[in-house]
Design a binder for these strands. Structure first.
Length: 257
DNA sequence: ATGACGTACGCAGTACGA
């Protein structure tokens, strides 16, 4: 089985690239984030032509997540029990069972700045996610993939000095990720196709991608049984190249039997 | 550098992102 996660930064704007990427990469399951469309506006017909069923959760202009699968898709859940809002619940998590594994696509709140109420929301959101995932883990194989908006270590940003005092690197955010792993999930490390670190995000501005000034903020967390099946995991930086890319690259994971 | 670039909304300029 091959699965992937990708923050597409608008599925409408990225549709031509998404379709080409699906055809070239041929994943069985895909977790998408920042689709930025309501559920009924998701291009489900276009991906169905490539054999994918869609489960989408959207609210229009902001956020939006989806799971695509060509190996079956059932028991769809939009959001998770106890998911905090800001103040209303946002479309930041969706899960479905595909090929015997529950896949959750997550788009963790950004946090904006450590002084902003959105930062507290981010921490509360991650704590509530941990609680919900403990129940999901007890129910069977689990993959939680997406844009966590946290760089787990200083090595996961191109220059820690640049991010001092910013969100994405603070100890409470990193502790929230560690707490999620403590319930029995495993960080699936992806290898970079170029450079020494598996960055998944590069700002559009100032030639950051060209200079490989990136961040590792998109992550794949997997239950023990799934993690043991991983044969390869890569950051597909090719998808970040060229005209009209997302600012995030996909992570592609291969599982053996 | 209150910057850059890109997206949505909507038709100018604002909000947001990490």
């Amino acid at each position: 089985m091959r699965f992937a996660t990708w923050n597409v930064n608008s599925v409408k704007a990225r549709l031509p690239r998404l379709v080409d990427w699906l055809a070239d990469t041929s994943p069985d399951v895909v977790c998408l984030q920042e689709t930025k469309v309501a559920e009924d506006a998701f291009p489900a017909k276009e991906v169905a032509e490539l054999g994918y069923d869609t489960a989408a959760y959207g609210q229009g202009r902001w956020n939006g997540v989806a799971v695509l699968s060509r190996i079956g898709l059932d028991d769809v859940r939009r959001g998770f029990p106890g998911q905090p809002g800001f103040p209303d619940q946002e479309a930041r998590a969706i899960s479905a069972r595909c090929g015997g594994i529950r896949f959750m696509s997550v788009y963790v709140p950004n946090g904006r700045t450590p002084e902003d109420p959105h930062y507290i929301y981010k921490l509360e959101w991650l704590a509530a996610l941990r609680t919900a995932l403990a129940d999901d883990l007890a129910a069977g194989p689990l993959v939680v993939a997406g844009d966590y908006n946290v760089a787990p270590t200083d090595a996961d940003v191109w220059d820690p000095a640049v991010f001092a005092g910013s969100t994405h690197v603070t100890p409470p955010e990193r502790a929230a990720l560690a707490a999620i792993l403590e319930i029995g999930l495993h960080d699936v490390p992806a290898r970079p196709l170029k450079g020494d670190r598996p960055f998944t995000y590069w700002d559009y501005r100032a030639g950051m991608f060209h200079q490989n000034k990136g961040m590792r903020i998109d992550l794949v967390y997997a239950s023990t049984d799934v993690a043991a099946r991983v044969t390869d995991a890569v950051v597909d930086r090719e998808a970040r190249k060229g005209k009209g890319p997302s600012d995030h690259a996909p992570i592609v994971v291969d599982l053996g039997d």
